[in-house]
């Protein structure tokens, strides 16, 4: 209770702020609509209203406040509008429907998971190579580290279009971008992990005359697990972002990224917010799942 209470307070404060902001964000459009429907609004001139401050408009037209929470196309949807839309597009729609968020979420999620698996696998293999070969270490590692300072995401549209032009479409191009984004954090984290055993532990194995292979399986690999899981969490979040951004130039309006893009084209704020919340829940669940796996694995290894 002592832990939950402050968190709940902060969350409640965020929602309170959100609700408080809705009238000010939506007042202009609301007044235009009400005026058209015959209500008397102050000032009654749309141009004057455009230049007036939202604060004054809300004060002078307090009767319009309830209406600001029920706009068809609000600038800032109220939380309950987003919740309603989420309910409508997840539970109430068949998952095969083009208007179901579950359908779009799955499209994004499948690309994320495939990419994440590829990226992680390749990352671990490269890390093992780097730890075993000095030449590889010195050649590749500086580039792997430097690449983390570069906005790799910027090449997403290009990869999509290039792969498209050679006939690869759908899941695979997005998965490649996801893989690419999760790859580098895993390489860097895993190399760090495989190098985690200190000199004394390595010397102990030397006194047993253990082979390199034995050293890897019995010492380096177990020691790397905490590092691996830490980078998996970063990697999966990056993979999801990659999949979403990869959906932007595809233009097919499929996936969560596609929902955001079409929402932005047609001014459907509620749709963007639902997609955003859905993506957030997805990201949080993925990180949580890896956290659970981490706890179980480390517990079995006696590391926690």
């Amino acid at each position: 209770m002592r832990k939950i209470f402050p968190v709940l307070t902060v969350v409640a404060a965020i929602f309170a702020f959100w609700y408080a902001a809705v009238p000010f964000m939506n007042v202009k459009e609301t007044l235009t609509g009400l005026e058209r429907a015959g209500a008397v609004v102050v000032p009654d001139n749309p141009i004057e209203r455009r230049d007036a401050s939202s604060f004054g408009l809300v004060l002078n037209n307090s009767f319009a406040i309830p209406a600001t929470y029920a706009q068809e196309r609000p600038r800032l949807p109220a939380p309950h509008q987003v919740a309603q839309d989420l309910w409508k597009t997840t539970v109430m729609k068949k998952v095969t429907s083009k208007r179901s968020l579950v359908y779009h979420g799955w499209i994004t999620l499948s690309a994320t998971l495939l990419g994440f698996a590829i990226g992680t696998g390749a990352g671990i293999i490269l890390a093992v190579g780097i730890v075993h070969s000095r030449a590889m270490d010195m050649s590749v590692m500086p580039w792997a580290i430097a690449s983390q300072t570069i906005p790799i995401l910027a090449i997403a549209p290009m990869i999509i279009v290039v792969l498209n032009s050679i006939g690869i479409q759908g899941l695979v191009p997005k998965a490649i971008i996801s893989a690419y984004l999760s790859f580098f954090p895993v390489v860097v984290g895993m190399v760090k992990g495989l190098r985690a055993p200190d000199a004394m532990q390595m010397d102990l194995l030397k006194t047993y005359n253990a082979s390199d292979n034995q050293g890897f399986w019995k010492l380096r690999l177990p020691a790397s697990m905490p590092y691996l899981f830490a980078s998996l969490k970063i990697g999966v979040a990056a993979a999801l972002v990659g999949a979403i951004v990869a959906e932007l130039p595809a233009g097919g309006a499929r996936g969560l990224g596609g929902r955001m893009l079409t929402g932005s084209y047609y001014g459907q704020m509620v749709q963007i917010w639902s997609a955003l919340v859905f993506a957030a829940v997805l990201a949080a669940s993925l990180v949580l799942l890896i956290g659970l796996a981490q706890r179980r694995a480390l517990k079995r290894m006696g590391l926690t």
Binding site: V241, L261, A279
Partner: peptide, 11 residues
């Protein structure tokens, strides 16, 4: 910090 915040871009 773990959420896909780029998603706020359209908003």
């Amino acid at each position: 910090a773990a959420l896909p915040i780029v998603g706020t871009a359209p908003i």
